[in-house]
Amino acid sequence: MRALLAADMTPDDHLLDIGCGALRLGHKAVPFLKPGHYWGTDASLALMRHGRLHELPQPEALPEDHLVEDRDFAFPGIPDAVTLAIAFGVFTHLPHTALTTALQNLRRFPNLRTTLFTVFLSDSATSTRQPDGVVTHPDRPPYHLPEAQVAKTITGTGFIATRLSMLLPRGQVLWSAT
């Protein structure tokens, strides 16, 4: 929530929570946003449904059809009203092509002003110990990417790239694609 509030999220925004899992963000965002303004996607519909029932103080505040199973970052059924998107801890566990695909497909949202996402950074072609001790890899999870490659991917998909300074768990780096 801190990252979204720093990106000027208001209750009027329409949030797309990519890789929302069991609603670790959703349980805070749903009550903050106006009714119907939260959408979540994940590879597991069952996990999202579980989170809706067990993590939300009022499950009825989140319509079940606002949870969309999406393994391919195609965002099926997500309305054009989306103004903010976040993918926290998603691209650290997927190959770089997933980030490219997600950013390309986010271009279809005409009202989207910012997408926030996290990655691990390293220029190393081998395993890297991040500052907090987690070991990342260029070719398997948890993945790391060179900073220049992240910036190039963002700009190459038509967004403006900004590396944000917010300190995140496990040495993840927060980026904004505007």
Rank of each mutant, 00 (worst) to 15 (best):
Q149K: 06
A161E: 00
H14F: 12
A46L: 13
E69G: 11
A87W: 05
G158T: 00
G156R: 09
R170P: 01
T178L: 07
L145F: 03
A148G: 00
V90G: 02
D132H: 07
T126V: 13
P57L: 15
L67M: 07
T92C: 13
A151K: 12
A161P: 13
L99W: 05
A6K: 14
L62D: 11
K34C: 03
L121F: 04
H66D: 07
V173G: 01
T153E: 04
I78H: 06
M166F: 11
A43H: 01
K152D: 14
P11H: 04
L99M: 13
D139I: 10
H37G: 04
S165A: 09
M48Y: 09
H96D: 07
R49M: 14
P146E: 05
L45F: 13
R71F: 01
K152S: 15
H54E: 15
L106A: 08
S124A: 12
H137C: 01
P57F: 14
T92Q: 07
L4E: 00
R24Y: 06
A177D: 02
Q172G: 04
F91M: 01
R170Q: 08
A148L: 03
L116F: 05
S127P: 01
I160R: 14
L25Y: 11
A87E: 04
P35I: 13
L25G: 09
L45R: 09
G77P: 14
F120V: 00
L94I: 00
D123T: 08
A151Q: 02
H144F: 02
D13E: 09
V90D: 06
